[in-house]
Write a protein that binds this DNA or RNA. Structure first.
Length: 411
DNA sequence: TCTGGGGTCCTAGGACCC
DNA sequence: TCTGGGGTCCTAGGACCC
């Protein structure tokens, strides 16, 4: 960093991303309340059965499925702005959304299509500003500090260029916040949605950040917020007013110290351009709750399928892992996980199925099940030296783990 | 009217090793 | 013989995020 440059970090997120991509396919739905969600088979079918002939844009609005007719098990991933007027929002159950806005249209989630647009807009960004951190399908951080023109108007000029370029290349809009660090940039990008640009400086801390509720901090979720409220802290300013030691006493060493830093707008995390995955998983919520005994065959088929999918994902992306795990969600929404570390790395469906099967025998199966998942962790690249090493001699630990599983499987 | 799917990181206890 | 650290790996659960 040169002496003259002031650290400027941008956070960009796409406006109503999934819904906006769908509106490019179906422009006739513009201005109407639309929700994307569920991905339930019924909705998929309704969309597949839309009248053929002409282009997608020719399909009459009346032919699209209505939320009230298709609300099943599942949640909304994105709602268009007209739908949001009715109080419908992401992560809301479809049933609840159908009460609020029965006339909304519903579309199934099409991840492949969103990924295509995700790659396109990120490519546009890296051509202008190479230091970009991927934060999921519709979000990135960008380091403006060393980019020519990145300092002009605190970053606003560069942000406008990026917005324009993304719109030209994809037809999609986004909101950008620029600040001295990631923490503040993330908050700033929410200030003026949609299509907004917000520029925040250190000197804005008291006027623009401190009045915000603590929940706006990336990392303070429902649990931490509830505890803060119980302690009489609602805003970031009120958090900043507490002594660091007091926060440490109430929230522990790491969290307390972190909260203090955050409240004072301090964050020195770098923008990370490359990262390796730690785990890959597949999970599915059943259309109806399943019983381990009564629905054994159905569960077994789903279980095998999940293992095959994870194996495919690993192979396609070129990774192997050695910690295999399962996840169950019971009808009461409680979650149980079990995992086992095996001796050599794998991406093989049969090995995953076998190990996951042993995990399944260690978990209570009395209650009806709502969800089943399979996970492979401790990943390394399939072409790395570690991955191809012969299996080391079994340690006492791994022998103990095997023994445990074998004993349990007798029951 | 209950609440998806795919991730990351942290904590905490026990085993094991030095 | 007893006591005691530190460090790492493994496992289960949980908070949080997109």
């Amino acid at each position: 960093m040169t002496a003259a440059s002031i650290r400027r970090i941008a956070h960009l997120d796409m406006d109503a991303f999934y819904a906006s991509v769908e509106l490019l396919r179906y422009p006739q739905l513009r201005g109407l309340p639309v929700v994307i969600g569920g991905g339930r088979r019924k909705v998929d079918e309704a969309i597949r059965n839309l009248p053929a002939g002409g282009t997608l844009a020719d399909i009459p609005v009346e032919a699209f499925p209505l939320l009230k007719d298709y609300a099943g098990r599942g949640v909304i991933t994105t709602a268009t702005y007209p739908a949001r007027q009715f109080g419908v929002g992401s992560a809301m159950g479809l049933m609840k959304a159908a009460k609020l806005c029965p006339q909304a249209l519903i579309l199934p989630v099409d991840f492949d299509e969103y990924r295509k647009y995700s790659r396109r807009f990120k490519q546009v960004i890296t051509e202008i500003t190479p230091v970009m951190e991927d934060r999921g399908v519709d979000e990135v951080y960008i380091d403006f500090t060393e980019v020519p023109g990145g300092q002009r108007e605190g970053g606003r000029v560069l942000a406008r260029l990026i917005q324009r370029s993304i719109l030209e290349a994809t037809g999609l809009t986004c909101s950008i916040g620029i600040a001295p660090n990631k923490l503040l940039a993330k908050m700033a990008s929410e200030f003026d949605k949609p299509k907004g640009i917000s520029v925040v400086f250190e000197s804005d801390l008291q006027t623009r950040i401190w009045p915000l509720p603590c929940r706006k901090v990336n990392g303070i979720g429902p649990k931490a917020d509830e505890k803060l409220q119980r302690l009489g802290i609602r805003t970031i300013g009120e958090l900043a007013a507490r002594e660091r030691d007091w926060l440490v006493q109430n929230f522990g060493k790491a969290t307390g110290a972190w909260m203090h830093e955050v409240a004072w707008g301090r964050d020195d995390r770098p923008v990370v351009t490359e990262s390796e995955p730690v785990s890959m998983s597949r999970e599915t919520t059943f259309d109806r709750d399943l019983q381990a005994v009564r629905d054994r065959a159905e569960l077994g088929a789903i279980f095998t399928h999940l293992c095959e999918k994870v194996a495919e994902d690993l192979q396609r992306k070129g990774y192997v892992g050695k910690t295999i795990g399962i996840k169950l969600r019971y009808d009461d929404f409680k979650i149980a996980t079990r995992d086992q570390t095996i001796e050599s790395f794998t991406a093989d469906a049969k090995t995953i199925r076998q190990t996951a099967g042993r995990c399944l025998k260690r978990v209570p199966l009395e209650r009806p099940l709502r969800l089943l998942g399979v996970r492979v962790g401790a990943l390394v690249r399939a072409d790395s030296a570690e991955a191809s090493q012969p299996a080391p001699a079994a340690t006492a630990r791994s022998r103990a783990a095997e023994g445990l599983a074998t004993t349990a499987s007798l029951f």
